[in-house]
């Protein structure tokens, strides 16, 4: 007897409140600025900004602008298609921006992604990169299209 299978989708809408901190960050993106918060206790500049420092467990309100240039900490290029995720190949990485103490997750681009070894050579940890911004910015994380190697 063939076992029956039913295809069932979860279609559940969510409206996620970004809260005041992230909202301020997104407003900054609209103006082409990347904002972080400095924890007054440990002094670290946290990017992306959040309402409290997880290490010190204190509120954070000291806003600072950080650079849109930074250093690659690590990366990967995806070659397999996963349902609902971006079409391959796409490269993501963690970049520590100048003036920030934490890394930020972002896309890497501006280069041919077909050969992963070449991409890893171009963006290897320690490589300096710079943000490439969208022309028409909407106040979303994707206003930064990707980071590319600093020429």
């Amino acid at each position: 007897m063939e076992v029956k299978e039913f295809e069932i989708w979860w279609k559940i809408p969510f409206k996620h409140s970004a809260g005041l901190h992230a909202t301020k960050f997104f407003e900054g993106l609209k103006d082409g600025k990347i904002l972080g918060v400095r924890c007054e206790r440990c002094g670290r500049v946290l990017v992306p900004p959040r309402a409290f420092c997880e290490r010190c467990h204190v509120e954070t309100n000291d806003w600072v602008e950080v650079s849109d240039e930074g250093v690659v900490e690590t990366l990967t290029v995806t070659y397999m298609k996963f349902t609902g995720l971006p079409d391959p190949p796409y490269a993501i990485g963690v970049v520590k921006l100048d003036g920030a103490d934490t890394g930020m997750l972002c896309f890497l681009g501006g280069v041919d992604l077909s050969e992963w070894r070449k991409v890893h050579e171009t963006f290897k940890p320690g490589t300096r990169v710079k943000a490439v911004w969208k022309e028409e910015r909407e106040g979303k994380i994707t206003d930064i299209l990707y980071f590319e190697p600093l020429k």
């Binding site: 996620h16 992230a22 996963f82 995720l85 994380i141």
Partner: peptide, 8 residues
């Protein structure tokens, strides 16, 4: 979903 999910 606010900062990181878009990255896939």
């Amino acid at each position: 979903p606010i900062y990181e999910r878009h990255s896939g």
